[in-house]
C-alpha cells in the first residue's frame, strides 16, 4: 500500500511539473519557430525522396526524410532544452522547486518529458507524410513504424542530454553549446567509421555512435533490443546526471 502511495504521489508531482513546463513552451515564440523550421525541412526531405520514387526505381519509403533527422537534432535538441533548467537558476525559481514538496528527480523527469512531448507534437504533424505515401503507393509499413520509433527514441536521448547540459549552468547559451558540441562529437564518431578502418576501433565507434543505432532502427524494419536499449540507456544516464546536478547545486548556491 505504502509503495503505491509513494508511486502515486510521484506521478502526481511529475504530472504537475510536466503540464506547467509543457504550457510554458507555448508561451514563447521560439517553439513555433523551431517547429516550423523542423517541419519545413522534414517536408523538403520528404519531397526530395518522392521525386526519386517518381522515377519508378524505388519502393516508396521515408528513408529520405528519416536519415538527415539525426543531423537536424544536433541543432534542435539544444535549442529546445537550453532554457529548461538554466532559466530556473537564473530567475531564482529553483528556490521554489527546491523548497516545494517535490523530489529533484521528479522535476528533471517532468521537464524532459515535457520537451519530449513538444517534439512528439511536431512528429505527430509529420504523420501527414506517411498518409500521403499510403494514399498514393504501397510502402512498407514496418519500415515507417521503426523509422518513427527510431526518430522518437533518438529525440528522447538527445533531449535528455540537453536537459543535463541545461542543469549545469544558469547561462542558456552555455547549455546550448554543450549539447550541440556533445552531439557533434557523437555524430562525428559515426563519420570516423568511414575513415578509420581498424578492426578494433571501428566497431567501438559504431557502438557509441548515435547515428549507427538510429540508422539500424530506421533502415531495417527490425526493432533490435540493443538499439532500443542504447537510447533508453542514454536517457536514463543523462536524466540521472541532471538530477545529481540539480541536487548538487543546492549545496553550492
Amino acid at each position: 500500500m505504502q509503495f503505491f502511495k509513494v508511486i502515486g504521489r510521484s506521478l502526481r508531482s511529475i504530472g504537475i511539473v510536466f503540464s506547467h513546463e509543457f504550457n510554458l513552451f507555448f508561451t514563447s515564440p521560439i517553439v513555433y519557430l523551431i517547429g516550423s523550421v523542423w517541419l519545413f525541412l522534414a517536408g523538403g526531405f520528404f519531397a526530395l525522396s518522392l521525386s526519386a520514387i517518381n522515377t519508378g526505381q524505388y519502393e516508396p519509403d521515408m528513408l529520405g526524410m528519416f536519415s538527415p533527422m539525426v543531423f537536424l537534432m544536433i541543432f534542435m535538441a539544444p535549442a529546445l532544452t537550453m532554457r529548461l533548467v538554466a532559466e530556473e537558476y537564473r530567475n531564482g525559481t529553483n528556490e521554489l522547486l527546491y523548497t516545494a514538496p517535490v523530489r529533484d528527480w521528479e522535476v528533471i523527469f517532468a521537464k524532459w518529458l515535457a520537451v519530449w512531448a513538444v517534439f512528439s507534437v511536431f512528429m505527430l504533424i509529420s504523420f501527414v507524410y506517411p498518409l500521403i505515401l499510403f494514399s498514393r503507393g504501397n510502402p512498407d509499413p514496418g519500415l515507417i513504424i521503426t523509422g518513427y520509433l527510431g526518430l522518437w527514441l533518438m529525440a528522447g536521448a538527445t533531449l535528455a542530454l540537453g536537459v543535463f547540459a541545461s542543469s549545469l549552468t544558469q547561462y542558456q547559451l552555455v547549455a546550448f553549446f554543450v549539447t550541440m558540441g556533445t552531439l557533434l562529437v557523437l555524430w562525428l564518431a559515426q563519420q570516423l567509421t568511414y575513415i578509420i578502418t581498424s578492426p578494433k576501433i571501428t566497431p567501438v565507434l559504431a557502438e557509441i555512435s548515435l547515428v549507427s543505432h538510429y540508422q539500424n532502427l530506421v533502415s531495417r524494419a527490425i526493432i533490435d533490443p540493443i538499439d532500443v536499449g542504447y537510447f533508453v540507456g542514454i536517457i536514463t544516464v543523462f536524466l540521472f546526471l541532471a538530477t545529481q546536478m540539480l541536487s548538487t547545486r543546492r549545496w553550492s548556491s
Binding site: 510554458l24 508561451t27 514563447s28 530567475n91 531564482g92 525559481t93 529553483n94 528556490e95 521554489l96 523548497t99 516545494a100 514538496p101
Partner: peptide, 18 residues
C-alpha cells in the same frame, strides 16, 4: 517538512510569463 512551510525568498521566485 516542506509541505508545512511557506517560504518567501529574498528574490521572489516568479514565472514572469504566467
Amino acid at each position: 517538512a516542506r509541505q508545512r512551510v511557506g517560504y518567501l525568498p529574498e528574490s521572489v521566485p516568479l514565472y514572469k510569463e504566467m
